[in-house]
Design a protein around this nucleic acid. Sequence first.
DNA 1: ATTAGAACTAGAATAATTCTAAATTGGTGA
DNA 2: TCACCAATTTAGAATTATTCTAGTTCTAAT
Lengths: 133, 133
Amino acid sequence: MDMRYAEKILEIISTSDAHMTAEQVFFALKQRCPSVVLATVYNNLNALCAQHRVRRIRVEGYPDRYDRATRHDHLVCPRCGALMDLHLADLTAELQRQTGLPIEGYDLKIQYLCPHCRAKAQASTHACGSADL
Amino acid sequence: MDMRYAEKILEIISTSDAHMTAEQVFFALKQRCPSVVLATVYNNLNALCAQHRVRRIRVEGYPDRYDRATRHDHLVCPRCGALMDLHLADLTAELQRQTGLPIEGYDLKIQYLCPHCRAKAQASTHACGSADL
DNA sequence: ATTAGAACTAGAATAATTCTAAATTGGTGA
DNA sequence: TCACCAATTTAGAATTATTCTAGTTCTAAT
């Protein structure tokens, strides 16, 4: 397993709340380790995800993002892809009970127009009478 | 908007419970319309998703899948990407209350090792003492 | 029949990610 | 110290899913 940079990558991800893409992690790491290459970042990220030390988040229409492995949910803006953390109660036990299955985890993404996109949507509604999507 | 094939595509998706990829939809449609091209399927699928008549499901490590637009949740096998429908109670109101936000919807994916992968995992555990992932 | 606009086709282009092979690194024992 | 081994990284090509562009065809209205 490729792991020479793993600790550094882990630190970058866990000290940022930016939900970075692989490329952003790569640029952040490059500041400290100029010789590192994007493929290495992907390798390390994949290894970290396999070990559940990092969490990969896929958002419709955007590259994968990487996040701390702590259990929490997300708010996703369907317009701009912005991601925000949300700390709701853990539903695992409840879902296990409802489904009767040995579930391993779950992923809850809540769609919500972020304030910025909400403002833009209102502006364009006022301007031309209907949304531009 | 590209919509000449939309009804046929909608029919293919809604009469199948296979959670098809764009390519599978394309092959199914090609049976009836041999001249159709993959890009057209993507265009129609995108239009249908924008109108919320079809739902796109992204699964880690696999191409996007398309599903009926009815509200329901999914069970996802983290090993093979298999998708299964799950009809749990609608959480929208509860989430709206808990977050205090005007949410537009949500996406709940529950990870669960499907019976097939479970059997395989057990077999390899017995054979060589530990999982092969 | 003509025209205009929408939708389709073909295939090139793009973007994210993975793969392959070669080079480098770090650790271990001689 | 030196040589060796396995693990990891590098470099860049390859792959895959999806989108884009330009030209063509279709439909419906005139």
